[in-house]
């Protein structure tokens, strides 16, 4: 089971990093989402893998699972959720203001080139 979880985390992280390095904002948002999924699973596993165990200590229970990573994951999920929502809005804002969804706002570069040409023509 450990190797399965490890592969899942690895593949998700690798895909996330690949997508973050893309040039358009939408794949970047998806990449960050995948990265946060990977990190959530990773945090969860850090309490070690247990099956069918309670998180609350009970004298009659045969054992228990570490409750702290679960609390950490809950916090991380909420934060990642909010941040992703913010990023999507920002990406849309950038799309409307910069004229395209390139992360560097290509239209700006094109505009500067045009201004330079305009100036060269004048002089």
């Amino acid at each position: 089971m450990e190797w399965l979880i490890a592969i899942v985390i690895g593949v998700m992280t690798a895909s996330g990093i690949y997508l973050v390095l893309r040039a358009r904002t939408f794949p970047v948002v998806l990449g960050l989402t995948l990265l946060s999924y990977a990190v959530n699973v990773f945090l969860f596993v850090m309490g070690r893998l247990q099956i069918g165990q309670a998180a609350i200590i009970d004298p009659s229970a045969p054992g228990y699972t570490d409750p702290l990573p679960q609390a950490l994951v809950l916090t991380a999920i909420v934060i990642a959720f909010g941040m992703t929502a913010f990023l999507i809005v920002l990406a849309l804002k950038a799309r409307s203001e910069l004229g395209n969804d390139h992360v560097d706002g290509m239209s700006y570069v094109a505009e500067e080139e045009a201004a330079k040409q305009h100036k060269a023509e004048q002089s």
């Binding site: 960050l32 990265l35 990190v39 990773f42 945090l43 950490l72 990642a80």
Partner: peptide, 14 residues
């Protein structure tokens, strides 16, 4: 991206 890495580091230390 930094926040994700922070969580990876925190998880590893824990």
């Amino acid at each position: 991206v930094g926040s994700s890495l922070f969580l990876f580091a925190v998880g590893t230390l824990y």
